[in-house]
Design a protein around this nucleic acid. Structure first.
Lengths: 227, 227
DNA sequence: GAGATTCGGAACAGTCTGTCTCATAAATTC
DNA sequence: GAATTTATGAGACAGACTGTTCCGAATCTC
């Protein structure tokens, strides 16, 4: 149960700094070209368009080479998604409201990025049928919700949230609205929107004299994970 | 822009009691058989498995007949979903908390029904690419969120919710957590869970001396729509 | 019962899948 | 720098799916 959402772009090595030989640059090149083409196809036409033939045609990489690297198309799509999503995490400040806003803002960016948006939808649709996507979904979910849990549990310990707070429910209440709005309603998620979700959450869960501070501008740039 | 999410299960009648000739029973039979097979395929293997060949093999209906009824597979899947989802709506009582709980319980049932669950995922994934699904998504969303809006706006008028309540946001906050929990986290949504989402929502938005009543048992059976 | 309609089967060319083989080109090793 | 190892891309292949067309047979409507 590796914690990493990237089960290796394909044949990557577990040893970070291998002794003698690095990976063959030819393989590296064809893999990169294939992933780029697959990414475009995913964005433009969804996961079902990411076929070996289509990727070969678009990338110039030979069909047999693709089959060599990715025996089935699911793995290719998985690598595209994993590659995009396994980036930086938002640093935590220890200030509850601020951290939550940052997290949601990261999710916001994720939902507005074409690749991760399509990737997320593919995962949601495919996880029930394709084991590759099922595992990817689990990794994404675990990785993405980890920071939320950390933040909430710390705040609970500090007494800023009720001791009996249901952390799972809380994550749903924070991330759910954004996902729902984006994936189903198909409307944009603004920074202001994310802030209001956090404030409403705090209004419901922060004990007494609350943190509620309406107007701060809290720009955020980093992209965390799918929560 | 028809308000109905069902662009006719295919040849359904808008006139409940048509005058002279009803639809040909032969067509009706083959259509029903095809839809049943398509439904099973959708549940078992996702929308991409709902092909004319597969449906023909499973239902016994001839391939040419299928193409005659549904020129492309998207329409078939759409009809499967529309047929399942366009059922009853939850009656409204006028009591805010009760109505919200009922609505969420309907959504809960929807998310736990194999057909609508798969259908919803298919719609989410496919809407960005396939116009048929795009339109279906819009219909489902509009139809599903309508009751929420009605309930919330009525409560706002009665003064049970803040006059400046953002209804769109509110719908997201109510339906979002359930969807998120089910579609991404892949965990069950209990009746208790739905109740807590409503109570937390009210805790954040109900003006002063709130409705908060922790323990009532509010069983609900009807299935409304995807909100 | 007679005419109209719908049915299922078969045949078709075109495309995609997944697997092989093979000569070529590039990288690594000595 | 030469020899060896390794990855590449092209082509051939059987099998499956698509979308269309044609047809005789079964069924329904009037």
């Amino acid at each position: 149960m590796s914690a990493s959402p990237v089960p290796e772009p394909t044949g990557a090595l577990d040893a970070p700094d291998a002794p003698g030989r690095g990976p063959d640059p030819r393989a590296e090149r064809s893999r990169a070209a294939a992933l780029a083409a697959a990414r475009d196809l995913l964005v433009e036409q969804g996961w079902s368009a990411v076929t070996h033939v289509a990727v070969a045609a678009r990338s110039g990489v030979g069909r047999s080479t693709l089959y060599r690297h990715w025996p089935d198309a699911s793995g290719l799509v998985r690598d595209v998604i994993a590659q995009r999503i396994s980036t930086a995490r938002v640093p935590l400040t220890g200030v509850l409201r601020e951290d939550l806003v940052h997290q949601l803002d990261g999710l916001r960016h994720l939902l507005h990025d074409p690749v991760s948006d399509r990737g997320l939808r593919a995962v949601i649709e495919r996880a029930g049928v394709d084991p590759v996507f099922a595992r990817l979904k689990e990794d994404l979910y675990r990785h993405g919700s980890q920071d939320f849990r950390t933040i909430l549990e710390a705040a609970r310990t500090r007494g800023e949230l009720a001791p009996d707070l249901d952390v799972d429910l809380a994550v749903d209440q924070l991330a759910g609205p954004l996902m729902y709005r984006r994936l189903l309603a198909g409307r944009p998620v603004t920074e202001e929107y994310a802030r209001r979700v956090v404030d409403d959450f705090l209004a419901a869960h922060a004990p007494r004299g609350t943190v509620r501070d309406g107007g701060r501008d809290t720009p955020a740039d980093e992209h965390p994970l799918v929560p």
